[in-house]
């Protein structure tokens, strides 16, 4: 049998899926033990037990000075920024995607512009954003928008262009105006693609959020990580990284569930 045609059974499949996770974990534990055996006060690779203790403290113990549990406050601050940035991007991307995809004048005017703008490295824009919008919330949200919006517009306008011409013509022969075609034909078919685009954009969105928070913020997940970096507090950093990963993964799962739930037609087939 050819190599490409061999398939794992159920048990082997589960084992293979778990293997990389276990391997990384084991490698970490071995490395940690080796370093701690040499120097018990080593901070670079804290023992898993230490991390678990730290995590418990971070999730449950209030800060002495402010009396607040910082991790939850950081999470809330970061998620609000992320939601604003991603939400604004999604709305604008749908509007511009429909305009560029459906209307030839808009396509002529904007498609070249958007492809050039999408080539600007967003992090290079960060100083400009800080200068223009100040160090507050606005610049962080705008960085996320600047970072993911051009990609989303390009992706969504392409999806609108890919709607078969026959379908648009059919709608025209039913007497639909441009607005009705956008609203009743293009938009509903664009929404599942929007969720796909959002899933792809969440990674970059987190990247820009943490970058902005690292440079100028007084709370937020990225701010905290870069703050405790000064004390080599690897246990805190690792807890935050794991927490961010869990949040991002949960969002991805939610979007996937939403896509299946809200657009049964896109998966319905014999």
């Amino acid at each position: 049998m050819r190599f490409i045609n061999r398939r794992p059974g159920l048990a082997l499949g589960v084992f293979l899926a778990a293997l990389p996770f276990v391997a990384v974990l084991v490698a970490y534990i071995i490395g940690s033990q080796m370093r701690l055996a040499e120097n018990p006060s080593d901070k670079l690779l804290p023992a898993p037990a230490t991390i678990a203790q730290t995590a418990e403290r971070l999730f449950t113990t209030p800060d002495k000075r402010s009396g607040r549990i910082l991790l939850w406050h950081d999470t809330a601050a970061s998620l609000i920024r992320l939601a604003l940035g991603v939400g604004i991007s999604a709305v604008l991307a749908v509007i511009f995607g429909l305009l560029i995809g459906l209307q030839p004048h808009m396509r002529a005017a904007f498609s070249g512009f958007v492809s050039v703008v999408s080539m600007i490295p967003p992090l290079a824009m960060l100083p400009i954003l800080f200068i223009v919008f100040g160090l507050g919330e606005t610049s962080k949200v705008v960085l996320i928008v600047v970072g993911i919006l051009p990609f989303m517009i390009r992706d969504l306008s392409q999806r609108v262009i890919e709607i078969p011409r026959e379908m648009i013509v059919k709608a025209e022969t039913l007497g639909a105006s441009s607005g009705v075609i956008a609203l009743r034909v293009a938009l509903p078919q664009l929404l599942p693609r929007l969720i796909q685009a959002l899933r792809l954009s969440l990674g970059p969105a987190w990247l820009f959020l943490i970058a902005a928070e690292a440079i100028a913020a007084d709370q937020g997940l990225g701010y905290r990580i870069f703050l405790v970096r000064r004390y080599l507090a690897m246990d805190v950093i690792l807890t935050y990284v794991a927490w961010i990963t869990a949040l991002a993964f949960a969002m991805d799962l939610m979007l996937r569930w939403l896509s299946r739930r809200a657009f049964p037609w896109s998966e319905a087939a014999l």
Binding site: P164, E166, K170, A171, P188, Q189, F263, W265, S266
Partner: peptide, 10 residues
């Protein structure tokens, strides 16, 4: 048309 004559989302 031969294809794409109905709206898949309805």
């Amino acid at each position: 048309f031969q294809k794409y004559s109905v709206f898949p989302h309805m």
